[in-house]
Design a binder for these strands. Structure first.
Length: 190
DNA sequence: TTATCGATGGTA
DNA sequence: ACCATCGATAAA
């Protein structure tokens, strides 16, 4: 069962930990690639200085202000793409960055999925997916049973040290026992 | 194990 | 000039 609008149209901080365990599907022609989400980060709105929407309604960030359940894909450091799930009602610019997947199907064994840039390459996600409806055939998420709260860990977001106090918020969530989480400073639990 | 650095190009 | 990254390299 695909996740629907009512699932995405909620606060990013609520959606983010619940996305752990859900399955991302990318279907391109004959190839079908699937991975289980094991690490995410919430970016909670224009007031969040780590969120791309904090610079206003720029062309890049525009999709964040739109309806929930769309993909926000951006190009970074001249060579990587990052994939986000847009959340909250229209007008509230927030999203969840997917940072790591456990490979399930169709992913070339030589490619890794333990990092936001790596998983996009492994899944074949590029700018052509930006603004895509996440309920469509080309890309979507499958609902899965919720994880027990003891297997959800949380800590500070990676790579946003410029964001002052927002850099220290525990908005990163990962599956504690997963070996596919990107290697990085772990912090707390629950 | 941690620390540092270069690649590479869109964004503002 | 900066960057929601990555892989290589060096030091310890």
């Amino acid at each position: 069962m695909r996740l629907g609008l009512d699932y995405y149209e909620r606060p990013a901080l609520q959606v983010a930990p619940e996305l752990l365990g859900k399955v991302l599907i990318v279907q391109e022609g004959k190839s079908r690639r699937a991975g289980r989400i094991v690490e995410v980060e919430a970016y909670v709105g224009e007031h969040d200085l780590a969120c791309h929407a904090s610079k206003g309604r720029t062309p890049r960030a525009e999709v964040l202000f739109g309806p929930a359940g769309r993909a926000y894909v951006y190009f970074i450091y001249g060579m990587h793409y990052c994939f986000n799930v847009v959340t909250d009602p229209e007008g509230v610019a927030s999203a969840v960055l997917v940072r790591a997947l456990e490979p399930l199907e169709g992913i070339p064994p030589s490619l890794r999925t333990d990092g936001p840039g790596k998983l996009c390459r492994a899944m074949g996600i590029d700018l052509s997916f930006n603004r895509a409806d996440l309920r469509g055939d080309r890309i979507h998420l499958l609902d899965m049973p919720p994880l027990p709260s003891r297997s959800v860990a949380k800590g500070r977001r990676i790579g946003v040290d410029y964001a002052g106090k927002w850099a220290r918020k525990p908005y990163r969530f990962w599956v504690r026992e997963s070996r596919y989480v990107s290697r990085s400073p772990a912090v707390s639990q629950a």
